[in-house]
Design a binder for these strands. Structure first.
Length: 514
RNA sequence: GGCGCUAUCGUCUAACGGCUAGGACGUUUGGCUUUCAAUCAAACAAUCCGGGUUCGACUCCCGGUAGCGCCGCCA
């Protein structure tokens, strides 16, 4: 849709992400925020965070905090918002009642809205009836033509009411979606919808268009579930004489059953993924991958790359299934590519949580000392760094680190006797090998105990074994040191554990074998 | 039920009238390796169906079908 791009003038773009703080930020909303952010930055515009907390019962301050923290963690930053203010604030709908009141009054004075006294039950049964006869379930219009006296009487009686919009009959509402082209709705399927609960409590459709207008929003980028809200909003804009923004409805993120992603699918909030051990780079990359692609064939992208390359043409029209496997793969990729120092820092809280170590202070890890809880030994950051270094390419999610590395923090590891046996070697053979290895290591002077020497000394010739028999030595040695079916290599482990500790572990293994 | 949106390997996607329909994740196999991981090779795997338009359709049009979304005094 080339012509639409003429409507985007760099520097004039103002977009908003407008969540309602009724739950933690989940992955689908995060992508909407991301696309808004990317679009705004790409066109050197402004990204605005607006909190839509008109629903007083469900909105919670803690969720607003969760949303803010999630976005910050992801690196999605706004230029105007509730926490930093801006020219068009306030940025919380609950603080904008005076503005809404003004517009409600205007519509009331112009006779474009009216109070409706129908009860919820009444409404519900009429809805059911309409559906049953194959009609769109819309409001009957019962209270639309109440006389002024009737309204006055009902008000005085204190009958609860809401405010409905007088939707014109039999009109076509046409709007252009930047991604999907022309979309047409008939007003007959809309009916007189509710715009406010009372004279100062607007509902979503109303509050949103007022704020978009007042905040000079140029493009509304939101999920495709809002397509059918758009004609209502356009109707209100017309009634108010407001110029509508440009609309762009992005596809939804789907669960494995292809329905709109929700908690029901077991997906977590952004911060829960953080806790599980995902890197923000991986989450961003994954979110972008789900429904957008660059011009080139590429699937690894940084936030900066995305800002530069983002384009509407690259957005997919159909919904995308959330595929955690791929997010995990991306996460592993970013962990491998990250500086060791960074991963070591991130690893520490997990080690602490797993009760493997205790950190002296909860910040500034590199200058910290750590207590190994089981052994009572004190170690420094380098020790942790070394351990992470030999595991970095094996880590896919940060939370699996304790299980991967726990043998470095144990007083005594448990070794399964059968596991010590390499392929079809005999128990005796393995025992001999370990004894031989032990003697060799015992003879290494402490000063020469390093990885390079170990590898040289345990080479084929010094052990007088053939290449095919390396496993007979290295496998049981590795098991003796780690106790695990899969672990880092024996030389790596030995170097970190030190001469004394590995001799102890080898001895233990020898004892098990008869 | 009404209306709207969508439709390429299992999943995310490329090909915007012209190739053996490409890549990635996953899966399988093999190489490397003491194991795992990483890495390198390879294999398997898709244009929803039916009509048009065209010399030629994944691509354009129409009709089905299916999936999803919305139909709240939620957003």
């Amino acid at each position: 849709m080339i012509e639409d791009f003429q409507l985007i003038s760099p520097g004039k773009v103002r977009v908003r992400y407008a969540p309602s703080p009724t739950g933690p930020l989940h992955i689908g909303s995060a992508r909407t925020a991301l696309f808004n952010f990317l679009f705004s930055q790409k066109y050197k515009g402004t990204f605005i965070l607006r909190i839509e907390d008109t629903d007083k019962e469900r909105s919670k301050k803690e969720y607003e905090e969760d949303i803010i923290n999630s976005l910050k963690w992801l690196g999605i930053i706004w230029q105007e918002g509730p926490d930093i203010g801006g020219k068009y604030g306030p940025y919380r709908q609950s603080e904008r009642v005076d503005i809404y009141k003004k517009y409600i009054k205007k519509l009331l004075d112009e006779d474009k809205i009216y109070p409706c006294f129908c009860s919820k039950d009444e409404l519900e049964s009429f809805r059911q009836y309409q559906m049953s006869i194959g009609k769109a379930p819309i409001y009957s219009g019962k209270c639309r033509n109440l006389s002024k006296e009737e309204v006055k009487k009902k008000m005085e009686k204190g009958i609860p009411f809401v405010l409905r919009f007088k939707t014109p009959l039999n009109e076509k509402i046409v709007f252009k979606d930047l991604l999907r082209g022309k979309i047409i709705f008939s007003t007959d399927e809309i009916g007189d919808f509710v715009i406010a609960k009372d004279f100062e409590t607007p509902l979503y459709n109303f509050a949103a268009i007022i704020d978009d207008y007042e905040m000079r929003i140029s493009h509304v980028i939101r999920g495709e579930d809002h397509i059918s809200n758009t004609p209502k909003q356009i109707l209100l804009q017309k009634a108010l004489g407001i110029e509508p923004p440009l609309y762009l409805h992005i596809p939804l993120i789907l669960g494995p059953d292809r329905s709109k992603l929700s908690k029901r699918h077991g997906t977590k909030s952004v911060l829960e993924y953080k806790k599980e051990g995902f890197l923000s780079e991986a989450v961003i990359n994954f979110l972008a991958l789900l429904g957008w692609h660059p011009k080139e064939e590429k699937e690894i992208f940084s936030l900066n790359y995305l800002i530069n390359e983002f384009s509407i043409e690259g957005i997919q029209k159909g919904g995308a299934v959330f595929n955690k496997e791929k997010m995990i793969w991306l996460n592993g990729y970013y962990i491998r590519k990250s500086p060791l120092e960074k991963i070591a820092n991130l690893a520490i809280p997990y080690l602490v949580d797993a009760k493997l170590i205790k950190a002296e202070k909860i910040d500034d890890f590199p200058s910290n000392e750590f207590l190994i809880l089981e052994t009572g030994k004190k170690v420094n950051f380098d020790f942790i760094k070394n351990i992470i270094s030999i595991h970095q390419e094996r880590i896919k999610i940060l939370s699996e680190i304790p299980n991967l590395v726990d043998y470095f923090f144990k007083q005594k590891i448990t070794i399964d006797k059968d596991l010590l046996i390499w392929k079809d070697a005999s128990e005796l053979e393995i025992k001999d090998c370990l004894i031989k290895v032990k003697k060799i290591i015992e003879n290494i002077p402490e000063i020469n105990f390093n990885r390079e020497n170990l590898e040289k000394i345990l080479s084929e010739e010094s052990l007088k074994i053939g290449k095919g028999d390396r496993g007979k030595v290295l496998w049981p040695l590795r098991v003796a040191l780690s106790g695990k079916k899969a672990s880092a290599g024996p030389f790596d482990i030995a170097t970190i554990l030190g001469k004394e500790e590995i001799l102890k572990r080898i001895e233990e293994a020898i004892k098990i074998l008869s």
